[in-house]
């Protein structure tokens, strides 16, 4: 018995070590960037690997970051674009997923098949046709160009369909008997029962679009409209030389909202799990 217990402890220790190494590998670049944002240029290039700065240059780097580029503007753009994308994605994906999971209609399997195929097509394939379309419409260099291509998320439809399928049909039937309209069922019965899925999707959506560089790089020329990732690129270009301290400071500022949002959402995520479950 005690041998088994010790083995359990050993296994746990091994697991912990492996996870710690994995986490360290994943976090190392970010931690290096965070450290660099507090160092003077000379120290960054010194060649010795040291985490803590010898002379603290944080204030200079961060003020430089805010002074040299409209970082605040980039963050606001990020909120507008990611918020816009997420709102439209939810507005379109939730009713669509509800229909796919809870209604029987001709062509349902075909539509769901189309959604699955959509999952396989990356944005890089459709980028050029989309670019040409927006150019024709005169919408290049607008928020619309940043938001519209992502307003319908097949991933969202797929994720919600899978989650809604687990909501008991009886609950929907009870809502119909009670007098909810189909729209009311979606927004007042299905959505409140689906917070975990919605939170998870929101995390995926916001992180990917906040960090997206590819599409904004194609359709945005104006600094005023640049979302955070593109903003960091402008920052570098504008400096016409690489000043890593302020740039790392900018990167940290740009990433911070995501980290904070994720931590908050994680809390909500757990609340959501305890709230759901019809049978409990």
């Amino acid at each position: 018995m005690s041998g088994g217990h010790r083995l359990g402890r050993l296994a746990r220790a091994v697991r912990l070590v492996v996870l710690t190494i994995g986490a360290a590998v994943m976090l190392a670049p970010f931690i290096w960037g965070l450290a660099a944002s507090f160092k003077p240029a000379a120290e960054i290039w010194s060649g010795s690997l040291r985490l803590l700065p010898e002379s603290f240059h944080g204030w200079e780097n961060y003020t430089a970051a805010f002074n040299r580029a409209p970082l605040g503007r980039f963050l606001v753009n990020g909120v507008i674009v990611c918020g816009g994308i997420l709102i439209f994605q939810l507005i379109f994906a939730i009713p669509c997923a509800y229909a796919l999971s809870k209604h029987r209609f001709a062509g349902r399997t075909v539509i769901f098949g189309a959604v699955l195929i959509g999952l396989l097509i990356p944005i890089h394939v459709t980028a050029i046709p989309l670019y040409l379309g927006f150019a024709r419409l005169g919408l290049l260099n607008t928020y619309a160009a940043l938001i519209a291509p992502f307003a319908i998320s097949v991933f969202g439809i797929f994720l919600f369909r899978q989650f809604f399928a687990a909501i008991p049909d009886d609950l929907i039937a009870a809502a119909r008997v009670d007098g909810f309209s189909e729209w009311a069922i979606i927004w007042r019965v299905v959505v409140p029962a689906s917070w975990p899925a919605i939170t998870a999707f929101a995390i995926f959506s916001v992180t990917s679009h906040w960090n997206d560089l590819f599409w904004p790089f194609i359709v945005i020329q104006s600094t005023d409209l640049a979302p955070p990732a593109l903003g960091v690129v402008y920052f570098r270009r504008d400096e016409s030389g690489v000043d890593f301290g302020p740039m790392m400071a900018a990167t940290v500022i740009v990433t911070a909202p995501l980290v904070v949002a994720f931590l908050l959402a994680q809390r909500r995520f757990i609340d959501g799990i305890t709230l759901s479950g019809v049978k409990g």
Binding site: D170, L171, A173, P192, L275, G277, V278, K279
Partner: peptide, 14 residues
């Protein structure tokens, strides 16, 4: 003008 009681109760969880 009917009311129904379901096997799984089907109460609104929220």
């Amino acid at each position: 003008d009917i009311a129904m009681v379901f096997q799984s109760y089907a109460l609104y969880p929220h």
